[in-house]
Computed example of a mutant assay.
Amino acid sequence: MGISSERAQAPHRRDHRIDALRGVALLMMCIDHIPQNWLNRFTMRNIGFADAAEVFVLLAGYASWLAYGRAFAKKPVAEVLARIGRRCWQLYVFQIVMVVVCIATIRIWRHFWPVPVDFLEPELAHGLDSVWRVLSLVALPGNLNILPLYIVLLLGFAPLYALLRGVGTPVVLGLSAAVWLGVNYDPRLNFPNWLDPDGWYFDPLAWQFLFVLGVCAARVAGQHDGSLPRSRLLAALCGLYLVFSAVQSFPWLDWGFADLRPVVMALPDKMILSPWRLVDVLALFYLVQSSPRATLWANTRMGQLMALFGRHSLEIFTAGTLVDLYGRLVLTSFGTGWMMQVVVNVAGFYVLLAVARVKERQRVAARQARAAMPDTVPARAPLCRG
């Protein structure tokens, strides 16, 4: 797609389906990261091969095209690269803040209440001498490993854009798929992680394929008024696969039911983004992003609430990670009875809601300030910006 055709497209209208789906994924990630939380019996990982992490990365690719891909066609390259660099720096700062808060919290907490061994990552057990490894992303603690993946993928967005413009979408998808297949064939192809001999929990060489698919999906949707082209046959195949995935993944025995799984198979590997997981999230995404009903739901009160979380994904993810930490500590130290479950879940939800509302007020205020700013800049001035 050339520059002229991209500029000729209709003005961008924010697609609330993307924000709402991302908001749902963020809440599920928060719930899933508290093992003692009874609510995690109802998240998507129990009714499918994929979970909220796959949705998050796929939408990261989709949103990256909306935020930066189209900008390359309209603004100076240096300006867009600077925006990407600032976003990567912001992601890194949030990552370090989470690491520092988590380490400090656990160190203080264990002076008053016992902390299980699984809370004590090696950088805690070995003291502060190894903290530099965490700061340099050489060591990625558990539950703090998805933002580094996002940083790596976003740093590769500019070369990805150049390849898409230079050799075309089919070639780029083929190259990306080849790397993903190579990792699935040999899982040793991974970034090193000082805390895990197997490498990064989200292997960037595998997960880049999901990010690239999200980018390409955004380009296709941009040519069809923001939606993926609807095919009844493809939608039916996606639905059938999701039914199989749900029956195969449901924890029948945990609920006291007979095991109704149709086939015996190993749990699909998350680290290398197993094909079972990849197809699962793609089927779900296609049904949502090609469905007018999903658009209607995204505009309901519940859909707008989820979209509120999704619009501020970084802040909600960060707050959710800290909610996870304190929720795990509280449930571990004071029991997992129904009263503590209610306290942890209600308190956690309102913390996330407060963060989302504050960020939304800031976003609206900034937009109003820009709208009220007098347009006194000469028309030729933007040509001089770099």
Results as ranks from 00 to 15, higher is better:
Glu315Asp: 04
Gln36Val: 08
Thr105Asn: 00
Tyr161Glu: 07
Tyr185Leu: 14
Ser4Val: 15
Gln304Trp: 00
Val281Cys: 09
Phe334Asn: 10
Val134Tyr: 11
Pro159Gly: 08
Arg7His: 04
Gln9Phe: 04
Phe42Val: 06
Leu39Asp: 02
Met1Pro: 11
Phe211Asn: 04
Met339Ala: 15
Met373Leu: 13
Pro122Val: 13
Gly166Val: 05
Ile146Gly: 00
Phe72His: 02
Pro229Met: 03
Leu153Glu: 06
Val358Leu: 14
Pro141Asp: 03
Lys75Ile: 00
Val57Trp: 01
Val131Trp: 15
His12Ser: 12
Val167Tyr: 04
Gly222Lys: 01
Trp65Asp: 03
Trp276Tyr: 11
Ala354Cys: 10
Asn40Arg: 15
Val247Met: 07
Leu164Ile: 13
Trp89Ser: 10
Ala246His: 11
Glu54Ser: 15
Phe56Cys: 00
Ala178His: 05
Gly335His: 12
Ser176Val: 07
Ala177Met: 13
Cys384Arg: 14
Val101Gly: 00
Leu296Glu: 07
Trp207Tyr: 07
Phe209Lys: 03
Leu296Met: 01
Asp15Leu: 05
Asn46Lys: 14
Pro148Thr: 02
Ala67Lys: 11
Val346Gln: 08
Thr321Asp: 02
Val343Ser: 11
Ile106Glu: 09
Asn299Lys: 09
Gly226Arg: 06
Arg232Met: 12
Arg277Glu: 04
Trp132Asp: 12
Gly168Trp: 09
Asn345Ser: 14
Gln362His: 14
Phe157Met: 10
Val179Ile: 13
Pro192Ile: 02
Leu284Phe: 14
Ala217Gln: 05
Trp194Tyr: 13
Phe42Ser: 07
Val351Pro: 02
Arg370Ser: 10
Val263Pro: 01
Leu329Val: 05
Arg22Ala: 06
Ser5Leu: 11
Val358Thr: 14
Asn299Phe: 01
Cys216Gln: 00
Ser4Thr: 15
Ala104Met: 05
Val288Leu: 11
His12Phe: 13
Asp203Trp: 00
Arg380Pro: 01
Ser5Trp: 04
Arg277Leu: 09
Val247Pro: 03
Phe94Arg: 03
Leu267Trp: 14
Cys30Arg: 00
Leu164Ala: 12
Glu121Arg: 13
Gly256Trp: 09
Leu233Ile: 10
Leu273Tyr: 12
Ala369Glu: 09
Ile34Ala: 04
Met271Cys: 08
Leu205Ser: 07
Gln341Arg: 04
Leu234Ile: 09
Val247Leu: 11
Leu253Thr: 13
Lys75Trp: 05
Ala369Asp: 05
Arg165Glu: 13
Arg232Asp: 12
Leu81Ser: 14
Asp375Ala: 15
Leu314Ile: 10
His16Ala: 12
Glu315Asn: 10
Asn145Glu: 13
Asp32Met: 12
Phe42Gly: 04
Ala307Ser: 11
Leu173Ser: 04
Phe211Ser: 02
Asn46His: 14
Leu173Arg: 02
Met98Asp: 00
Arg301Gly: 05
Asp32Cys: 03
Val281Arg: 06
Leu253Arg: 13
Phe72Ile: 06
Thr300Gly: 04
Val138Gly: 08
Gly168Tyr: 07
Met373Tyr: 11
Arg14Ile: 12
Pro116Glu: 13
Pro35Tyr: 08
Ala53Gln: 02
